[in-house]
């Protein structure tokens, strides 16, 4: 396969054969993934880190950055393996196992590289990286991209937008929870229960974005 052909295959939607980007569609994907189908508040992906790392604003930002980073790389890896390896060999039923291995080894690799070459970034993101392997948002975006038959370009756009959506929800939540620390919450609702209540109210707000599509 020469490079021009390879490039056009990568940019094309697997089953339509039409190469390139459609700006309108790209915007639709971005808005849908950040707001309308927000990964945390509408699709329920990545709830564990959403609750676990939203107590402090700083750590929320760090976690968000780490997720966007790994999500993009994982999408690149999973899309390539799926469309250039599993599909031609008729092994698509191995996709779940392949994706989770890609994500796990990617997280490990990123951790090692950061540790060696960028200690500053490592100390900022390092503690969040091991948590990311079991963040279902990462595997979720990989599986969704395949389900939707997105081209590599759209898949990456979707991954970045999903990561931004996750980060947005996380940061909003962290801000609210910092205020909540000072509030007078009934003892039975302290901690997780009130966090879920806040998430529910945020989710109602995000429901309003549904109108954006039409």
């Amino acid at each position: 396969m020469n490079s021009a052909v390879l490039l056009s295959t990568l940019l094309a939607t697997p089953d339509s054969g039409s190469p390139g980007f459609d700006l309108g569609k790209m915007m639709a994907i971005i808005i849908a993934s950040i707001f309308v189908n927000n990964f945390v508040l509408a699709r329920f992906l990545g709830i564990c880190p959403f609750l676990g790392v939203s107590k402090q604003l700083d750590s929320a930002i760090g976690m968000g950055a780490a997720v966007i980073f790994v999500m993009t790389l994982a999408t690149l890896g999973s899309w390539t393996v799926y469309n250039l390896l599993l599909v031609p060999m008729g092994l698509t039923y191995l996709s779940t196992i392949a994706f989770i291995l890609i994500i796990a080894s990617l997280v490990q690799l990123v951790e090692m590289i950061l540790q060696k070459y960028s200690p500053a970034l490592y100390s900022a993101l390092g503690i969040f990286l091991p948590l990311i392997t079991t963040n279902c948002a990462i595997l979720g975006v990989a599986v969704l991209n395949i389900d939707e038959k997105y081209s590599l370009g759209y898949s990456l756009v979707n991954a970045i937008a999903a990561g931004i959506g996750f980060t947005l929800a996380l940061i909003l939540m962290a801000g609210l929870r910092q205020k909540l620390e000072l509030a007078d919450v009934p003892p039975a609702m302290k901690g997780k229960p009130v966090a879920f209540l806040v998430a529910g109210i945020m989710s109602i707000a995000f429901l309003g974005f549904a109108g954006l599509g039409g």
């Binding site: 939607t13 089953d15 339509s16 039409s18 569609k25 939707e148 038959k149 081209s151 759209y154």
Partner: peptide, 9 residues
């Protein structure tokens, strides 16, 4: 002309 990628043309 399908505006979405989820089915072929």
């Amino acid at each position: 002309e399908n505006p979405y990628a989820s089915c072929d043309n």
